[in-house]
Computed example of a mutant assay.
Amino acid sequence: MKALSILCFALLILGCSNDDATNQPPDNTELYFPPIGSDVWETKTPAALGWNETAAQPLLDYLEEKHTKAFIILVDGKMVMENYFNGHAASSLWYWASAGKTLTATMTGIAEQEGFLDIDDKVSDHLGTGWTTAPLAKENLITCRNLLEMTSGLDDALGDGVTPAELQYKADAGTRWAYHNVYVKLQDVISEATGQTYSDYFNAKLRDLIGMNGGWFVSGNNIVYASNARSMARFGLLMLNKGKWEDTVIVNENFWNEAKNTSQNINLAYGYLWWLNGKSSYHLPQTQFQFNGSIIPSGPNDMYMALGKNDQKIYVVPSKRMVVIRMGDAADDVSVALSDFDETLWEKINALTN
């Protein structure tokens, strides 16, 4: 990544068209799903995949050097690599930071398919008017879809707070892409629409159905998720399989497809709270500058990504039938969610897998 890109991508908490054949995950019959409530997880060896095994140790050395705590590679749902470093263990919980935004996106899709909301609803339909300090006519332009896209039009320069006083008008909704913590209001929308706490609804409709562990905790102005690395991998596997756990639909395929494709025409590399690789250009937080090229040039073009502060990562790669997980402290002692670490990491993964 260019140095300018790195500086611009300070996440606070943190090309491919929809019909691109390479952007289709495998049929679920090709995928293995670990059983619910069990530590059993079938494995597949790098040798069985024809990988370059001599590249494995340099990858692991790099991960350990870069303050990684957990690293997982799944192929066809099976565990190919599972490594823990720096005092972390398989049972250890760790925060997802902004990688957890994708959980909120998924829960929004679930609430919509159950008839509790429509993503084109005005946010004020669920939260009432006055949830921002924008003029009423401007506030009423903001839909749940805008929060999923990061096109609320609210001022992203005012920090992480989401009280009305901190949610101020900058531009009409849908006309400006800006990474903004206002997305957390979707959790309030879901709670109001379903009549349940966000945590209870999440547990019943997502976490428990795919065998994740962990829970939500308050961090500053955010509700942040923490789990073990295998839970993160389970979620990545769900997304690889078009929102289904085995044959059970968790979130419908239409929403899944929209979520992992370009959601608006300003930042081509952003779906519904997912980052998208392989696009012709991208925007980054705290700037309106358009960067040309792919976010991670060494990464697969069809990869979609959950990215969080201090290098929490979920990479989903349909063309490789692969999910990659990284948890840990910041790789380079800075809190940006995308840095040279991503580029070098994928160079090393490619050396192993190609």
Rank of each mutant, 00 (worst) to 15 (best):
G214H: 04
L14W: 13
T22H: 14
L167E: 00
L117E: 01
G215W: 07
M322Q: 11
G328A: 01
Q57M: 03
P318H: 03
Q288M: 13
I110V: 14
K69S: 12
Y179E: 07
G328K: 03
N292D: 14
V184K: 08
N350K: 11
P34T: 12
G195K: 10
T29M: 13
W96F: 11
F116G: 01
L209Q: 15
P34H: 10
T54G: 11
L74N: 03
L148M: 09
P300D: 10
A89F: 09
W216N: 06
E192F: 08
G87C: 02
N28Q: 14
R207N: 13
L127F: 04
K2W: 07
V323C: 05
A134H: 00
I119F: 04
A111H: 00
G15L: 09
S5A: 12
E139W: 01
L31M: 11
T175L: 10
D342V: 07
M303T: 08
I73D: 03
D39W: 09
K138L: 03
D342R: 04
E246S: 14
W131E: 00
D188S: 11
P300A: 10
P58G: 02
Y183C: 08
F341I: 03
Q290M: 13
T129C: 00
L268D: 11
T104G: 05
N267M: 09
P34A: 13
M303C: 05
L11T: 15
W41I: 08
L31E: 09
N292K: 15
D39M: 11
P25T: 04
E42I: 05
M305R: 14
L141G: 13
N18P: 10
P300F: 02
S199R: 14
M232C: 09
G109P: 02
I6W: 12
P26A: 15
F116T: 00
N221L: 01
N23G: 13
A48T: 12
V251K: 10
Y84F: 10
K2Q: 13
N203C: 12
T163P: 05
E65M: 01
V182S: 12
E30H: 13
D20P: 01
K244F: 05
E114T: 07
Q24G: 04
S17A: 12
N83F: 06
E258C: 10
N181I: 04
I119W: 05
M81L: 14
D172E: 11
G87K: 03
F341P: 02
I73V: 15
A233W: 01
W275H: 04
K78N: 05
L147A: 00
M107Y: 02
